[in-house]
């Protein structure tokens, strides 16, 4: 389940998070962040065993259609309406090592930008054959893939005329709870990306570009589905050599 060297699980603390790369808690252009962001500084803590460890999930928990959103909510013999795509890539850590056994969960709106959620009131219709959630676990090379339909853009009450770009939400577990990450994947070439206040919470343009999946022509399946490649990077961790020694490394 883990990045083992010589078969031993890694126990090093994680690289500190670069919080100038991530969005800050307070980003007034995204209005809801104003009352939901701490005003006081975070308390820094080099990882203890409570953060270095994390839950693991076995492949046995997965159903046959968990990574096929085109079919996992569809009536027998039917499928979701929209642009059929494959989303695939690798989960790596900052050292470039594959993160095997990582649970990846994803959710999205349908082709018209409508979410299947009771609090959602957008007038675009639901697709009776589309639920909008899926999950998978990375293989020994950190690889994952799923099939879905490309989500539509979606209006939201922030500014008077704000629209989200087409996006898929991702939730990822690594091997330590400190690696826990939720993010959003965007699509190459979408002009909406650069207008979005939620994308705009990220200060660094390169950090935004890292969230944009490229059209992957090589992995496109002729007469079936186009492919987008989206690699995800989780925090790296220190060598284990001098851990548990009071003087540290």
């Amino acid at each position: 389940m883990s990045n083992h060297d010589n078969g031993r699980p890694e126990t090093g603390a994680f690289f500190p998070r670069d919080r100038s790369w991530h969005p800050p808690a307070l980003s007034p252009g995204y209005k809801t962040s104003v009352l939901r962001s701490p005003r006081k500084a975070l308390l820094s803590l080099d990882g203890t065993i409570s953060e270095i460890t994390g839950p693991v999930f076995g492949h046995s928990m997965l159903g046959e259609l968990d990574n096929d959103l085109i079919r996992n909510f569809a009536k027998p013999g039917e499928s979701a309406i929209g642009e059929r795509i494959i989303v695939h890539g690798r989960v790596l850590d900052e050292r470039g090592r594959p993160v095997a056994g990582a649970l990846v969960e994803f959710w999205q709106a349908n082709a018209g930008g409508r979410y299947r959620h009771k609090k959602e009131s957008y007038l675009a219709p639901l697709d009776p054959n589309f639920g909008g959630c899926g999950r998978t676990i990375t293989d020994e090379n950190g690889y994952y893939y799923f099939r879905t339909i490309k989500p539509g853009p979606y209006p939201w009450p922030n500014g008077v005329n704000d629209w989200r770009p087409a996006h898929i939400h991702f939730s990822v577990f690594g091997h330590g709870f400190a690696q826990r990450l939720i993010t959003q994947m965007y699509f190459e070439g979408d002009p909406m990306i650069w207008k979005c206040p939620i994308v705009g919470t990220i200060p660094d343009r390169q950090a935004i570009e890292q969230l944009i999946a490229a059209l992957d022509w090589g992995n496109t399946v002729p007469m079936d589905a186009r492919a987008y490649k989206f690699d995800i990077v989780l925090r790296g961790r220190r060598s284990t050599f001098f851990e548990n020694r009071p003087e540290g490394n």
Binding site: F15, R17, D18, W21, H22, P23, Y30, S33, L92, D93, E94, R95, G96, E105, F106, W107, Y115, R116, H117, K118, K119, E120, G131, G132, C133, R135, H169, S171, L181, I182, T183, Q184, I198, V199, T201, I202, D204, Q206, A207, I208, Q210, L211, I232, V233, L234, R235, G236
Partner: peptide, 24 residues
């Protein structure tokens, strides 16, 4: 080294992905 993928909000419909039965 690679850079960590930047975080984004889970949004109001996080339940669809993480607790689908909870949201129907």
């Amino acid at each position: 080294y690679l850079k960590e993928t930047a975080s984004q909000t889970a949004g109001p419909y996080v339940h669809i992905g993480l607790t689908p039965n909870f949201c129907g």
